[in-house]
Design a binder for these strands. Structure first.
Lengths: 248, 248
DNA sequence: AGAACACTGTGTACGGTAGAGACAGTTCTG
DNA sequence: CAGAACTGTCTCTACCGTACACAGTGTTCT
């Protein structure tokens, strides 16, 4: 990566603020085409297969020609994300914040199942495009009728997203190292070998799991939000009277 | 990366099962020394500064000499992790599963603050070393007295870890893109510019935050776990009588 | 003691990555 | 029609991880 990492120019690219160029020969392709082929490569061969050379070759271009469209690989990744996220789910069918959040989690999950590289990339400090932003906006809409503050709603939404990300099966993320994945059998073996040092883990991996991490976690998460929400709605009117000082 | 990624040999390295070599000249260094210098470089200059060449040069070695100690960069990373994680916190001082989990979260947080690259690396499908495993064992011990099943306890522990990871300030992980980080001001600007499309987000970023995401999230998480735990302890004896069929 | 052997560290080379900069060709604008 | 602006290509650099042959060094066996 290089000195090109100017977030402002990236933002202009993502939000359609690049001034259209008139003079000179027409570009053979456009950003959408670039993004689509890159997404296709990532979907079928994994994210590590996406290199400047590879994508350029896929389009019948030289590697350096790509730099006429994007300022670097960071920008290519950004437009890939925008192309892949799609549109957020419709939450209007679900009644109540809890059902809406569950629906949102489902939507996130299916989108990520379609593009398994997506969760590992839509992370960290970065400029987001309008389509990805729309997801966050949709998620926030699930909590508008709750007594949570604006930032608490955002926190709650992020919690749900992170949980789905962490339990994403094909992710390079927080897969359950102990029970799933290619390293799991080795870990199991090592734990049973050292059962005296790690008795709790050893017994755990010896037992087959009946529940899924994702469901259990989401349940706990929503239960926890429910607690503060119901608590605040009940104390809503009382709080003022209770905190009102007695007249002298 | 190469064909070297054999998880078995990695496991042997991490768990001290490498047969000690006697013949030939003594190696100038050992794995601990390698790991320590690599950790130091990662701590001071970031994880991307850790390359085979860099670490070798730091030790006064040729790049290729490192391959006499580790089979590749994957193994180097693995021993770096083992060297950096340290020992898990002592939870015996905390009373009850909730306080214990909070203490565990605190310990995780301080360990990751010391080595900001650690959370982004201790993730995904991989073989873990004994010291990292000890952390998981410790975390599990917090929940031994709860009516949760073994796998549910593991799930709960993973949830807490993921949450701390996701809210880790210096992480390449799920920092709050909207409110923190270098891209945040740009996102704020874009949202206020497009406030009609993203009203909820726009109002949110316009308001200063009073609470921290980490605390709010951990609260919700533990509240959620509390619900199932207390629910099950109360229904413990009743459940059998309630589910017992009436005599005909 | 001497030979055989095993191991360490070095030098060179390879294929991969992202990217800079000069250049030729094309197309629009004045 | 001429000049300006733009596209795509070519060559080059600087990294990265890693394979492999080789020289030197120390241990072990005879």
């Amino acid at each position: 990566m290089a000195v090109n990492e100017d977030p402002r120019t990236l933002a202009e690219l993502l939000w359609g603020l690049r001034k259209p160029r008139i003079r000179g020969p027409r570009p053979a392709y456009d950003l959408a085409r670039l993004a689509d082929t890159a997404v296709k490569v990532a979907d079928t061969e994994g994210l590590e297969a996406v290199s400047m050379h590879r994508i350029a070759a896929e389009l019948g271009l030289t590697k350096m020609a790509l730099y006429r469209y994007v300022n670097g690989k960071t920008e290519l990744m950004a437009i890939m994300i925008e192309a892949a996220v799609g549109t957020p789910p419709d939450l209007s069918g679900a009644a109540g914040w809890r059902a809406k959040l569950e629906e949102y989690a489902r939507g996130l999950s299916t989108a990520w199942r379609r593009h398994p590289w997506l969760p590992s990339v839509t992370v960290g400090d970065r400029v987001m495009g309008p389509r990805e932003t729309a997801w966050a906006e949709t998620a926030l809409s699930a909590l508008t009728d709750t007594p949570l503050t604006e930032h608490e709603r955002l926190d709650a939404v992020m919690m749900v997203s992170h949980h789905i990300r962490a339990t994403h099966p094909a992710a390079t993320q927080g897969t359950q190292t102990w029970t799933d994945g290619s390293a799991a059998p080795i870990m199991r073996e090592l734990l049973l070998l050292n059962a005296s040092r790690f008795p709790l883990l050893a017994t755990t991996v010896a037992i087959p799991s009946t529940t899924t991490t994702r469901e259990f976690g989401l349940l706990a998460l929503l239960d926890g939000l429910d607690r503060t929400i119901t608590q605040r709605t009940h104390n809503n009117g009382d709080e003022q009277t209770a905190s009102r000082p007695d007249p002298p």
